[in-house]
Write a protein that binds this DNA or RNA. Structure first.
Lengths: 198, 198
DNA sequence: GTTAGTTTATACCAATCGGTCAATACCCTC
DNA sequence: GAGGGTATTGACCGATTGGTATAAACTAAC
């Protein structure tokens, strides 16, 4: 029997993620990927098949490592309001560390959608759909605990929060500074906060 | 003396807009532009200089014809709340007609920002800045008329509305259907609406 | 009708695109 | 250590990239 593949597929995929993340699909060339991944052209095609296949794999892994993991943790919080605020705080922190203005690979891809195939559209749609559902569940949980105003429509507010996250991520790509991003977070927090009884 | 340039620069630019709008900067090739603009390669380079220069011109013109013109009209409305609602209604209608999922060229570019030069960043930043300022002014106007709750922080809410618009535009590129887009509009309207006194 | 300038069409450029392939280097099993 | 099979490697592929150059066809003012 021969010998097993000895370069780490996941590790290589991670490096591919970081390349695609920064430049998007179209603007990334195979040379960029080879340089960034530190493997050879032949190996790349042998291991992944094509640029498109590599992108698919990269996006899937990105989504699992970032969105899925984060939402899984936050969903366990008993207070939905706290979960949402924590999420936004995390996004602000992420933006602060994102000195290269990479934003979010999922959102970047969502805007590139018309260039990709149906498979990518489905991935993005379901990922953002789950994101929205997290918000909805959290709002319901918060409302039952009394930390989120009962007057809010969970579905509507969930869509609105999802939209905020996406806009935030777009603006983080070079338009807003950290203060602007933080303001968006604040606005989102206000939206799910009980009006002060005066 | 010779004869003056007889093919319409603005008209050609409009066609270039529609090509860039759909595919973005990187994914658009000169062949795409030549086909879409209906002029010859030589003429194109003679008239515009380079792909980048053409894109700059196209984006500038797009911004003037769409955002600037719309905001100018809406700013004249006496009631800020009505102006904002009208804006969102317009976006919903635009999305409905946008069967090709082109979204908004300005937002598309905002997400592509790291690929462009400083000039484009400045254009996008100032355009979105003016957008935000329109919201702020409208909110203040609405508050003084009593149509928008005085409890809202104008700057914060303006940023939030801008974020909604951007997220809306991203989701319109293929993730949300028209109902989803309309929900975002509704959420934005709720945000600037006086709570019902019960 | 000459003339200056514009547009068109086409051929061309080096560079790079995504992708392939045969040779080599390699490691594991026997 | 020989054999079998995989990974790596760099050369190589045709096609296309953004951009230039050319000469012919055209148009309008003189």
């Amino acid at each position: 029997m021969p010998w097993e593949k000895n370069f780490d597929l996941d590790e290589a995929t991670d490096k591919a993620i970081s390349v695609f993340w920064k430049k998007g699909y179209e603007a990334t060339s195979m040379s960029d990927l080879i340089d960034g991944m530190g493997i050879n052209k032949g190996s790349l095609y042998n291991a992944f098949g094509s640029k498109k296949a590599l992108f698919d794999r990269a996006l899937l892994r990105y989504d699992q490592k970032n969105r899925l993991r984060a939402l899984a943790q936050l969903s366990q919080m008993p207070d939905g309001r706290e979960a949402i605020v924590t999420l936004f705080d995390g996004l602000v922190a992420e933006t602060q560390e994102d000195t290269e203005n990479r934003g979010c690979m999922l959102v970047n891809t969502a805007l590139e959608l018309p260039l990709h195939g149906e498979d990518i559209r489905e991935m993005v749609t379901s990922a953002l759909g789950e994101f929205e559902e997290f918000f909805r569940q959290s709002i319901i949980k918060g409302q039952s605990l009394g930390t989120i105003p009962k007057a809010l429509d969970p579905s509507l507010t969930a869509k609105s929060l999802l939209t905020s996250v996406i806009g935030m991520r777009v603006l983080a790509r070079g338009t807003f500074d950290v203060d602007g991003i933080r303001a968006i977070r604040d606005a989102a927090v206000v939206m799910i906060t009980n009006p002060e009884v005066s």
